[in-house]
């Protein structure tokens, strides 16, 4: 399992991290790593583990929402959802105010750039797939 966050991410086993957050061993490890860094590692590790998992349900949206907009942008770039993008490429670049996705790197290495405002037209809403885990 590979993450693109940096070299130090490679040594993290996401399953161990997921177990650690439930158990008591988090405190002992937090003394080794700084708290923020640890949380960042944790979020990426959890995303990686979820990204590797297969979705259990799928839904077609009827109306536009911010969630649909997010899925539209990701699926245009060839990803299932944000979790898959996290597991393959890492962090998503977003617009400051709206929080919509600004830039995505496709699997072939090219970049897609997105607008500040809504991009998913009403005619495209039913083409989007919303995955559940």
């Amino acid at each position: 399992m590979q993450t693109s966050g940096g070299q130090d991410h490679l040594c993290i086993n996401p399953e161990i991290y997921c177990k650690k957050i439930q158990g008591t061993s988090v405190r002992s490890n937090s003394s080794v790593l700084p708290q923020r860094k640890y949380q960042r590692h944790l979020s990426i590790a959890m995303a990686t583990s979820l990204g590797a998992r297969k979705p259990t349900s799928i839904q077609r949206p009827k109306r536009w929402s911010e969630e649909v907009e997010e899925a539209y942008r990701l699926q245009l770039a060839g990803y299932r959802d944000a979790l898959e993008y996290h597991s393959v490429k890492g962090e998503i670049d977003r617009w400051p105010k709206s929080g919509y996705i600004k830039k995505l790197q496709r699997k072939d290495g090219n970049y897609y750039y997105y607008n500040r405002s809504r991009e998913c037209a009403d005619k495209d809403v039913n083409k989007i797939k919303l995955y559940g885990y």
Binding site: L76, K103, Y111, Y112
Partner: peptide, 12 residues
């Protein structure tokens, strides 16, 4: 058929 987008080889 991926709509009206350009794929940039380099970051803008």
């Amino acid at each position: 058929t991926k709509g009206n987008k350009i794929a940039w080889k380099i970051e803008i």
